[in-house]
Design a protein around this nucleic acid. Structure first.
Lengths: 262, 262
DNA sequence: CGAAACCTTGACTGAGGTCAAAACGTGTGG
DNA sequence: CCACACGTTTTGACCTCAGTCAAGGTTTCG
């Protein structure tokens, strides 16, 4: 618990009333279960997924309609493309990938979603989802019925603005990914991926220099628009050049500066 | 006016009170000025940019805060990256590209926006825009102050849902563009681009088979993540294969089926 | 402990990038 | 109305980065 000394340990919240399922033995879930918290108020992800400055009453109102959280085992989906859209999801623990698929079988990872991220907004437009959301480790999500969230948005400005910021953030994130896919070399893509992940872990209180990849080389490659062999070659190259230290899925960033300037 | 017989001519709306500026001589603006309409009620883009089933009162309310439309000449911007975000824009006539830029000068077209499309939502998340919106022909936009739109969303469910659909649509559009950039061959990208443009023109009442490109090969290439020479080569190839008939920027789609199956 | 999934590395290939030159269009000013 | 200049497009020749295929090593999980 103190091996990440410099970074606060993520505290958990909204543990389901039932005894934790078998899956809770996995690290991510276990982490989320360390402390007992039933409410958003106590959730460490609050600062990411909830607006600031709500009154206790408003807070309670939100908690009242957030469904009991759900545990999703590695490889399982929260929703699939064409599933009817009812709710959005906030990742409480674990991580997910979203995958879009073309009829011809071509498929692409469009995002990795860590604790505190939202999932499911792709369904807002057409009332059905446009991608699969798949757990890449045993995970846990809050379920937020969208029509209730919309109702709340009509009453509380801060909630409305927060939802708009989340949706707007998704738009900006995707357009910077389009820039990566459209203009960067394989080397730059992999460097950008590592730096981006590092940033997001730092914002969540984890070490930005040392972390464990939850996804395979193939998933990274799909996300970056390159092949898994190319991902591997670039990582090896960074290793040779002393920018990173890599053992399988364990990453240590040695030279942040030079990684930025790749 | 009847040379597109099978497709209804797009009617205009919300012409500014002042005499039309010099720019109004250009085709897109002239088209928008053919009929005199001061209100959204009369705007042909209504079905695209306004929700269905508003009461006259609600309609009036919206019209009351939409600012006088603004004319933007080819090459001019509505907003630039880092400009403070105040309003979103609905394209009334003409077309735009949005361009994101990296510090190192790399830049990429992230979208083309036709009459009826919205612009500016990239600013919602951080309060400043993350791309430039540049007119690729003389154009005209409605200006919708975002905080007033948000206020209206709190009062009228239909307006709220419409905004959410527009934002959600942007998310879906971008993720399918990520799939294009991540997995398709140059040939498929260009075919997809033509088909997509054709679809959007059809939905706006124009011929889906015959149209005029407003953008250069370089802008198309940037949008598709390939070089302008490659765009040109693919178009020539489609021409040789009898899929399209191309003269400069005038496109005629001859074999929609085979274009789909590229 | 063994099977399956995942990762690394090498050799070869090819799609698309780069560079260059010429053709085409369009708007401007004489 | 023409001529010129500039931006745009096309096409060819060549090159390179990343994809493909293959083989062997490592990790993970039942």
């Amino acid at each position: 618990m103190s091996d990440v000394a410099a970074y606060p340990v993520i505290a958990p919240a909204r543990i389901p009333l039932q005894a934790p399922p078998a899956a809770a033995r996995s690290p991510a879930i276990a982490r989320a279960s360390q402390k007992d918290g039933q409410r958003c108020t106590a959730c460490s992800m609050r600062s990411i997924c909830m607006p600031q400055g709500l009154t206790p009453r408003e807070m309670q109102r939100i908690e009242s309609f957030i469904c009991p959280s759900r545990t999703i085992r590695q490889g399982e989906t929260i929703y699939r493309a064409n599933d009817s859209f009812q709710s959005i999801y906030a990742v409480r623990a674990g991580s997910f990938k979203t995958v879009v698929m073309h009829r011809d079988g071509r498929e692409q990872v469009t995002g990795f979603h860590l604790a505190g991220d939202s999932l499911g907004l792709d369904g807002v437009c057409f009332g059905h989802h446009s991608c699969d959301a798949i757990a890449i480790e045993d995970s846990n999500v809050c379920i937020i019925p969208f029509h209730l969230l919309e109702a709340m948005c009509r009453e509380v400005k801060a909630v409305q603005q927060h939802l708009h910021r989340i949706m707007g953030g998704e738009i900006v994130r995707e357009s910077s990914q389009m820039m990566l896919l459209g203009t960067m070399s394989a080397e730059q893509r992999v460097a950008t991926f590592l730096l981006n992940l590092s940033d997001r872990l730092r914002m969540r209180g984890y070490s930005p220099a040392e972390f464990h990849l939850r996804m395979t080389r193939e998933e990274i490659g799909s996300y970056l628009g390159i092949k898994l062999e190319t991902v591997s070659r670039m990582l090896s190259k960074f290793q040779r050049d002393g920018l990173v230290d890599i053992h399988g899925k364990d990453i240590r960033i040695l030279d942040h500066e030079r990684l930025v300037s790749v």
